[in-house]
Nucleic acid binder design. Structure first.
Length: 517
RNA sequence: GGCCCGGUCGUCUAGCGGUUAGGAUGCCGCCCUUUCACGGCGGAGAUCGCGGGUUCGAGUCCCGUCCGGGCUACCA
């Protein structure tokens, strides 16, 4: 069977991680089976649809690397791919007429007030609310003709069969069945003439030859309506696949309250598309073995509906960070630098931190923005030097954004000095002598071709000359003098990158700080 | 309220009648080491939501129950 799936978002806002997961599963599934992945825009609700949102969807999907074989941005043999355009092309009209001719749909002239009243009565009677056979399901042709003649607005509803069982065979959940009397008659065509999701989506799925309807679990409740619609037309039903949703740490459906849900925000925070896909794929799916860190090719190769989980998963940022760190370390330094430049040059990166509100216990977003800005400048000023700095930080960061603060000390004349570090290491008996010797060596013996081992030898020489038992008391003040802090890359490596000229200024500055006033 | 789905370490998961319930992340410790990471090793952490069955034997099958979630729009 040839696999054809579709990602059919309703672009009413940002593309969030839940939708990304939905898109990713289809992407993986389609590619695994060498099938077709279609992008279709569900814009039947004209009051909520926004073109900006559609643009964000498309650019985000592009960033993350989820491609489509057909869609509004690339066209294809089953177009148009926007439902509003399909409506205008007259695609739905003959189908609704056929459905009415078949007796599977009917016009309903209820006013919103009448429907509200009906609901109130149902609630009071503790019945389930919905249109189970309202005034118009069994109306006579005369009643309908009169209402039409009077020009009353109407919707077209699906006539759900009564007194039977509607069941589906879900790929994840297996057999699921409903008493058809508990399914209300959904609106197929709204009063404004636009089709609803229940109608347009199913008609399109059939017309586009969709083999698997892969969607979120929140659709399971309306699956019997959709199944019944396929049956009413006499169409072959696609395979239903209702995926579990991604929930926030409180177990509720992911929403803006849970912090970052916008996929572009993860891009701005410096997560790599590959790591994000890897991570997202692992929520609700597993390859069946112990593999976790996987390349896209491996994900595609391993992806199988059988590995899908029925229960919802929580979004664990720590695991994403781990995977992202692995992805950064897996990059060749030169490629990493290119990725970093792209990242820094994406306008949303800086905007994101600029607009981010400062949070207790979190680094200041304005500082992150500044560090990123400085990093970008440093790269364009001296790519070679920046590359060396980045290479030393590559094993120690988890996101691209981390490079800003991690590399900051390399750039500029003097690093920001951490007060505690200065207090701890600058006031030993030998400190000033150490800085003096380093200043001296920076202008004499150290040169551009001084090797890392030479720097080590110089510091060890000082240690021996001063009868120090350990190297620490030499290394630590030197590190603070050079970087302003107590953490970072190996000292000798970092000296090799910095070079004598930069070091000299820093040692002089350190000496001033270490000299009692 | 009604209908439906779900429930294994904090988290993501493996498991498909017989396992000391495995892995990963996070956490802790040790090693590596000039620091922080990376990497390596080890540890704590799950009476498999709960209660009944079926069975020689149940996380795995059945029933009940509790809890969580979704849907219940002329939104998707």
């Amino acid at each position: 069977m040839s696999v054809r799936v579709r990602f059919a978002p309703s672009p009413t806002g940002m593309l969030h991680v839940g939708a990304l997961r939905d898109a990713l599963f289809k992407h993986l599934f389609a590619n695994h089976h060498h099938g077709v992945n279609i992008l279709r825009i569900e814009d039947t609700d004209q009051t909520r649809y926004s073109p900006e949102s559609e643009a964000e969807f498309i650019s985000t999907l592009e960033w993350v690397g989820i491609g489509f074989q057909e869609g509004p941005h690339i066209d294809g043999p089953n177009g148009p791919y926007r439902q509003s355009e399909r409506k205008q092309a007259g695609i739905y009209q003959p189908h609704i007429e056929k459905l009415m001719a078949l007796g599977h749909a009917y016009k309903a002239f209820d006013t919103p007030e009448e429907l509200a009243e009906m609901r109130k009565v149902q609630e009071a009677a503790k019945q389930s609310t919905g249109y189970y056979g309202g005034a118009w399901r069994d109306a006579t042709p005369q009643q309908v003709a009169e209402a039409e003649a009077a020009g009353k607005p109407f919707v077209i509803r699906q006539r759900i069969p009564r007194d039977t069982v509607i069941s589906i065979n879900d790929a994840i959940r297996g057999h699921v069945e409903w008493d058809s009397n508990t399914i209300d008659d959904p609106v197929l065509i709204k009063a404004d003439g636009m089709p609803t999701y229940h109608f347009a989506s199913m008609v399109d799925d059939h017309l586009m030859g969709i083999s698997h309807i892969i969607r979120g679990e929140e659709w399971l409740s309306s699956a019997p309506k959709h199944a019944a619609l396929f049956d009413a037309f006499g169409w072959k039903r696609p395979i239903f696949v209702h995926c579990p949703v991604i929930v926030g740490t409180d177990g509720k459906k992911l929403s803006k309250r849970h912090g970052a849900t916008r996929v572009l925000d993860y891009a701005a925070q410096g997560y790599l598309p590959g790591a994000l896909k890897n991570f997202i794929a692992l929520i609700g799916w597993s390859p069946g073995d112990d593999r976790e860190a996987m390349t896209e090719a491996e994900l595609i190769e391993a992806f199988d509906l059988k590995g899908l989980q029925p229960s919802p998963g929580k979004f664990d940022i720590d695991k994403l960070r781990w995977l992202n760190g692995l992805a950064i370390r897996a990059l060749e330094p030169d490629d990493l630098l290119d990725v970093l430049i792209d990242y820094l040059h994406t306008p949303y990166t800086l905007d994101y931190f600029n607009q981010l509100e400062r949070e207790e216990g979190q680094p200041d977003p304005k500082q992150i923005e500044q560090d990123l800005l400085n990093l970008d400048r440093a790269i364009s000023h001296d790519r070679g030097f920046a590359l060396e700095a980045i290479k030393l930080e590559q094993p120690r960061v988890h996101t691209l954004a981390d490079f800003g603060s991690a590399c900051a000390f390399f750039f500029g004349d003097l690093p920001h000095m951490d007060e505690k570090a200065v207090q701890k290491w600058f006031f030993q008996p030998h400190t000033i002598a150490l800085f003096d010797e380093m200043i001296e060596k920076c202008s004499t013996s150290f040169g551009e071709d001084t090797m890392i081992s030479d720097y080590e030898a110089a510091l060890r020489g000082f240690q021996e000359a001063h009868g120090l038992e350990k190297l620490g008391p030499v290394v630590h003040p030197t590190r603070v003098a050079l970087t302003g802090k107590t953490t970072g890359p190996g000292l000798f490596e970092l000296m090799g990158v910095l070079g004598p000229e930069r070091m000299k200024k820093r040692f002089q500055h350190a000496k001033e700080l270490a000299t009692p006033a």
